[in-house]
Simulated assay, not measured.
Amino acid sequence: MLQSESCYLHIIDPQERLMAHIHEASRVTETIIKMVNCARIIGLPVIANTQYKKGLGAYVTGLEELMDEVPRPDKIEFNALANAETKELVSALPATVDTAILVGVETHICVYQTALGLQELGFSSWIVADGVSSRLEKNHLLGLARLRDTGAAIGPAEMILYELLAKAGSAQFKEVLPHII
């Protein structure tokens, strides 16, 4: 079972110019926003990346506004952990953190390669199935299959959030609930 003290949320490249071409981009954006809001309530650290911001632009509207205090290195690497600044941020997480919850694009490129990079550092990866996608649906589905083959756990945002919450009735549950219903 996921424990909040062992997890962090990693957002990968949901930028305007790229998201304009992503399969079911609005679903992915809504899920990432949900995950960011809930991560704050639950107390998960959040790290984000952009891919060549000069060319692909800022994050999509609605998400960009939530990024003020989130470290967000710009990268040219597909594996975010191959970026020195990102690797440093991940390495500086509390020692109890050993699981990355990944959202963003593209499933079969940056999400996949980042999950592999995390494995090399000893992290487990949970892929938020409704919070990732690719330009082509078939690449998204093949990416999810390959991620599962490499040992990543895959599930919808709601499954992950309820697992982190563990029970109803708490103050955290009541604060998260409007974001998941």
Score class of each variant (00 low, 15 high):
M1Y: 03
M1W: 03
Q3F: 06
E5D: 15
Y8H: 09
L9M: 03
H10Y: 07
I12H: 01
D13I: 05
P14V: 06
P14T: 08
Q15A: 00
E16R: 10
R17S: 00
L18W: 11
M19E: 09
M19C: 07
I22V: 15
E24D: 09
E24Y: 02
E24Q: 10
S26H: 15
R27T: 11
E30Y: 03
K34A: 06
M35Q: 11
M35F: 07
C38A: 13
C38L: 05
C38T: 15
C38P: 11
I41K: 02
I41C: 01
I42L: 12
V46C: 03
V46W: 05
A48S: 15
Y52Q: 02
K53D: 00
K54H: 03
A58M: 01
A58S: 05
Y59L: 12
Y59G: 05
Y59M: 12
V60K: 07
T61L: 02
G62H: 04
G62C: 06
L63E: 06
L63V: 04
E64W: 00
L66K: 02
L66H: 01
M67S: 00
E69P: 01
P71H: 02
P73Q: 08
I76F: 06
N79G: 04
N79F: 03
A80K: 12
L81V: 12
A84E: 14
E85N: 09
E85T: 11
T86E: 08
T86Y: 13
T86V: 15
K87A: 14
E88M: 07
V90D: 01
L93A: 13
A95T: 14
T99V: 10
T99C: 10
A100F: 03
A100N: 04
A100R: 02
A100L: 03
I101N: 06
I101T: 07
G104E: 10
V105M: 14
V105G: 08
E106D: 12
E106L: 13
V111N: 10
V111K: 11
Y112A: 13
Y112Q: 14
T114L: 07
T114Y: 07
A115E: 10
L116Y: 06
G117R: 15
L118T: 12
E120V: 14
G122Y: 05
G122I: 04
F123M: 03
F123D: 04
S125W: 08
I127K: 11
V128N: 04
S134G: 08
L136F: 12
H140Q: 03
H140K: 09
L141S: 11
L142R: 14
L142Y: 13
L142P: 02
L144M: 13
L144E: 11
A145W: 10
A145G: 09
R148V: 12
R148I: 10
T150D: 05
G151S: 05
A152I: 07
A157M: 07
E158G: 10
E158K: 14
M159T: 11
L161Q: 06
L161P: 11
L164I: 14
L164H: 13
L165E: 14
A166C: 05
A168W: 01
G169F: 11
S170G: 11
A171L: 04
A171Y: 02
A171K: 08
A171P: 02
Q172K: 12
Q172C: 02
F173W: 12
K174H: 13
E175S: 10
E175Y: 02
V176D: 06
P178E: 07
H179C: 05
I180N: 06
I180S: 06
I181T: 12
